[in-house]
């Protein structure tokens, strides 16, 4: 027994038992071999509720090694409840080093954002996914959705896009906009803002997606083509707040809108806290 295990008070390194990790790693390898394809796996009960990142936390637990440095973000921020508790969880059960700096992390678990800083080879981004099926709102039967994936028939998703443009005049979804991975599988990017979608394309880092409640894992290997679904004459255009960040003045980062007083005052601040800190220093 290593020191890390004893530290965790009887838990195995990174909480999950080795057999479970093996099963999850196998699913990850399968996912990487078929980019964008959802691989079912036997998700375990985790010590946090569904919807708080049970899928992501299992992926992180399975890939974490003692020399890894972990960063956890929730909506881009390192200091929100979800991020803090997951980070502390791995500090306790794995004894790994943690960081808030994107550049220094080897594994980044994220909820609903991709860090602003370009990720590099060797980094792994783990997404928490609430609903892995991109056809979920279009085809209620999962069996039929699976068949559509198998046949590569994505006219339904294109139809949804058509409806958005017909109703709102633009490709409507500002988050969770479906992407085509490697020209084959339609994939839900998890609810990241459309602004982050282009970062999926030819990403240097490995992208892993875990859905705990739906028991699915999918992945995008490095340098894979990832295209947001659109029409030729209505190309996908991510939305970006016009105002600069109130703290660092950045114009090209994704912003959160924050109510600043009780007279309707609002400010925009970077959603990625590490990026904002770097800009200010």
């Amino acid at each position: 027994m290593s020191a890390a295990v004893q530290e965790a008070g009887g838990y195995n390194f990174a909480y999950l038992d080795e057999a479970t990790k093996r099963m999850i790693r196998r699913a990850i390898l399968k996912g990487l071999a078929i980019p964008g394809h959802q691989i079912p796996f036997g998700a375990r009960e985790m010590p946090l509720p569904y919807g708080w990142g049970t899928g992501g936390i299992q992926l992180t637990a399975s890939i974490l090694g003692p020399r890894d440095r972990l960063k956890v973000i929730d909506q881009g921020a390192d200091d929100t409840t979800n991020a803090v508790s997951i980070r502390r969880f791995f500090q306790r059960v794995a004894g790994v080093e943690v960081t808030t700096r994107t550049a220094e992390a080897t594994v980044i678990q994220t909820r609903h954002r991709i860090p602003e800083r370009h990720l590099t080879e060797g980094q792994v981004l783990v997404f928490q996914v609430p609903m892995p099926e991109p056809l979920f709102r279009l085809e209620p039967r999962l069996t039929e959705a699976r068949r559509l994936h198998a046949l590569g028939d994505y006219s339904l998703a294109q139809l949804r896009l058509y409806e958005d443009i017909a109703r709102q005049g633009e490709t409507g979804s500002s988050y969770n906009h479906p992407v085509m991975v490697n020209g084959r599988y339609l994939m839900s990017p998890s609810p990241i803002p459309g602004y982050d979608n282009p970062k999926l394309h030819r990403s240097a880092a490995i992208l892993l997606f875990g859905a705990g409640r739906e028991k699915k894992i999918y992945a995008v290997p490095p340098w894979t083509e990832v295209r947001s679904l659109d029409f030729d004459d209505h190309p996908f255009r991510p939305m970006l707040a016009a105002a600069p960040c109130a703290f660092c003045g950045s114009r090209d980062s994704y912003k959160d809108e924050i109510v600043s007083d009780d007279r309707g005052g609002r400010v925009f601040v970077c959603s990625d806290t590490d990026h904002c800190r770097e800009n200010q220093s």
Binding site: Q158, L159, Y162, E163, A166, F231
Partner: peptide, 25 residues
Amino acid sequence: RLGVSAGGNVGERLMAAGERRYGSI
């Protein structure tokens, strides 16, 4: 498809056949 506009209903087969221009649909 009852949840989809009349135009979308007519256009669906075009999209299934690979049409990717909104205007021509």
